[in-house]
Amino acid sequence: MGDRASFRTLYDRTSAKLFGVCLRVLDDRTQAEEALQDVFIKVWNNAGQYRVNGFSPMTWLITLARNAAVDRRRKRDAGRRPEPIDAADFVADPSPGPAALLEARAEAAALGACLRELPPDRAEMVRRAYLEGATYAELSTATGVKLNTVRTWLRRSLMQLRECLSR
């Protein structure tokens, strides 16, 4: 009805929320301010068209703000050239997810417990051979044990580990 004082009160009470709606859609402060101005011009010109239909006036205002921001964004984006599609954006993240990490931790704990069941020298040999990459010859030289004995110990240790892990 053209009541400026009422309009000012409406603006003071709703502009921050409506600006937030516009800013979320547009992601640009200047564009959001312009969209908000468009909203309040519509409200000033069309306030008489609001009908109580079970929705609050705030819902009507938010809808106006969202629609104004979406329209402005469509116009803005229509003039832009599409960015080239990078196939890497569609490739799944190769890193393990939470479930895989949890499973790996459980397996590592089980392996650690099974390694503790081996004699300490054999457990150390298994660690060096299979976790650090030491060769049989390097293990033989480092421990002073014959090469064939190192192979036998490692084979038997792996069989014990497999049996322990299967329990």
Rank of each mutant, 00 (worst) to 15 (best):
I85P: 04
P120C: 12
R8E: 09
G79S: 01
L165P: 05
V91L: 13
L147Y: 15
F7Q: 01
P94M: 05
L111C: 09
D77V: 00
I62P: 06
A87D: 14
G20D: 11
M58E: 15
L139H: 01
Y136L: 09
E103L: 08
L64P: 12
L64E: 06
S157K: 05
Q49Y: 09
E83Y: 01
D28A: 13
R66N: 06
L101H: 12
K42Q: 10
P120S: 12
E163Y: 08
T152M: 13
T9Q: 13
E103D: 05
E117R: 14
V126S: 06
V91K: 02
N148G: 01
L26S: 02
P57W: 04
R122W: 11
D28N: 15
A113T: 10
D28V: 10
L36G: 02
R105G: 11
L23K: 09
R72H: 07
F90E: 11
M159V: 13
L118K: 03
S157N: 06
S157R: 06
G133H: 08
N148F: 04
T63I: 09
R128A: 14
T152N: 15
R4V: 15
D121E: 15
E132D: 15
L64T: 13
F7W: 01
R127N: 10
R66Y: 07
N148S: 07
K42E: 09
S157F: 11
W153R: 09
L23T: 06
R76M: 03
N67S: 12
R13M: 07
E34F: 00
D89M: 06
E34N: 01
E124S: 14
R80P: 02
D86T: 11
A92I: 09
P84N: 04
L139T: 00
W44S: 06
A134I: 04
L165M: 10
Y136K: 01
N45V: 08
D71T: 08
E103S: 02
R74I: 03
A87S: 14
E83D: 01
L36T: 04
L158K: 15
